[in-house]
Amino acid sequence: MTPPIVPHLLLAVALFTVGMAGALSRRNAILILVGIELMLNAANLSFVTFWRFGPKPDPQTGLMFALFSIAVAAAEAAVGLALVISLFRHRRTTSIDAAGTMKG
């Protein structure tokens, strides 16, 4: 019987892997953002897991970290999507290949 911390952490690892693979392989800038959101969520899950099962009897720090991480992720999504819209206005596409050149 594995302790309950392991499956939760393995899920977090799997989510992180999928998010990273997506962020590295997709060409649509919005989907790259989706991959980054997935990675952030995986990190959150591991925070909560360690808060719940971790050895140190700390009341709320892990929970708080996850809460703040959610807030930061929301800010990141807002700015990232604004950048995508800005890119779309320039190039008429959301593919990041279009952002490879410095010429406006």
């Binding site: 392991v6 690892v13 693979a21 392989s25």
Partner: peptide, 16 residues
């Protein structure tokens, strides 16, 4: 992308 991510994931999984 998938290869790199799977390598990173494998390392993390050992840790988990």
């Amino acid at each position: 992308g998938w290869l790199i991510a799977l390598l990173v994931g494998a390392v993390l999984a050992v840790g988990a």
